[in-house]
């Protein structure tokens, strides 16, 4: 790795000032599972590395059923899936956190890092979108909220401006009859990058038979993670049946524009969107029914 300076600020204001006034390229370091590999392989350069893990807001994980979840951007994945209440309230998020790399990666890798790395295949991003998460961005000009589905703008790029960092990801409180699920397709059991993936969230009406609200997100099938808006809106008011899930899968396919690469062809990926949307909706409904 090339030489760089290192700073470990202990407040958001200090971090933002360091990032805004750095000479040359400043990079934020969370778990380093993307950044340090990219620096070593010269895919990215850094003159200053700003380690944000000593900022309390970024390491916060607080949950109440009334307030929902506040997830500090740099909280490592294992803290999410080891948290029984959070895993029960947001199963799609816990499922993704458990499959980001292997155990050693999950000890360090953060959801904030996954989102800010802005890979089209980032495993936690579909759950964030499906669960309606909002991202708190802090910068020299103050604080703004960005919806998870608006965060990534192209492969590796996001809405963050110079001096800004992601501080917290805020999840709405879990719905009473709500459920969620995340699934990716990979050719092996673990440690691989998604060929296609889907995350779904549903809220059922009191009968448990009809979908009141739903959100579907798909990843690894377009330059950015996608919110399947049409499929999500269409699901509201529909019976929670296999036919409905399958039809939503067809609608979700419309927002997929995948490429063909060594992991899979365009055609196969579009097919997977249908299958994974259907499966995650079915699982989300099952969980919503308890």
């Amino acid at each position: 790795m090339k030489s760089f300076d290192y700073a470990a600020p202990t407040s958001l204001a200090e971090a933002s000032a360091l990032l805004a006034h750095a000479n040359g390229q400043a990079r934020i370091l969370a778990g380093g599972t993307d950044l340090l590999v990219q620096l070593r392989e010269h895919l990215r350069e850094a003159d200053l590395v700003v380690d944000v893990k000593r900022i309390p807001e970024l390491m916060e994980l607080s949950f109440t059923p009334e307030q929902g979840l506040r997830l500090g951007a740099s909280v490592p994945c294992y803290r999410i899936y080891e948290h029984a209440e959070v895993s029960a309230a947001y199963p799609a998020l816990a499922e993704a956190a458990r499959i980001v790399g292997g155990w050693q990666i999950q000890s360090r890798a953060s959801v904030g890092g996954n989102l800010c790395n802005s890979s089209p295949a980032g495993d936690t991003i579909a759950p964030l979108i499906a669960l309606g998460a909002s991202c708190t961005v802090v910068g020299p000009e103050g604080t703004r909220q960005v919806a998870a589905e608006e965060f990534c703008v192209s492969p590796g790029k996001n809405v963050l401006r110079r001096g800004e960092l992601l501080s917290t990801i805020v999840f709405p409180p879990p719905a009473k009859s709500g459920g969620s699920a995340y699934e990716r397709f990979i050719p092996r059991n673990e440690m691989d990058i998604a060929v296609a993936a889907a995350g779904s969230w549903v809220e059922l009406d009191p009968s448990g038979k009809t979908i009141k609200n739903a959100r579907v997100a798909i990843t690894a099938v377009a330059p950015t993670p996608r919110f399947a808006a049409e499929a999500s809106q269409w699901l509201a008011g529909k019976p929670a049946t296999e036919e409905t899930f399958a039809q939503a899968g067809e609608l979700a396919k419309k927002v997929a524009s995948p490429i063909t690469d060594m992991r899979g062809t365009q055609e196969f990926r579009v097919h997977l969107v249908g299958v994974l949307t259907k499966r995650t909706l079915a699982k989300a409904v099952e969980r919503a029914r308890g």
């Binding site: 290192y6 470990a8 370091l29 380093g32 599972t33 340090l36 590999v37 590395v49 380690d51 893990k53 490592p76 294992y78 155990w103 050693q104 990666i105 000890s107 360090r108």
Partner: peptide, 20 residues
């Protein structure tokens, strides 16, 4: 692999300065 504050990590992708 080494244990860092009780959890296993790949020490090749941890900066030594981080372990203060």
């Amino acid at each position: 692999t080494v244990m860092l504050n009780g959890v296993p990590v790949n020490s090749c992708i941890v900066l030594a300065v981080e372990v203060e």
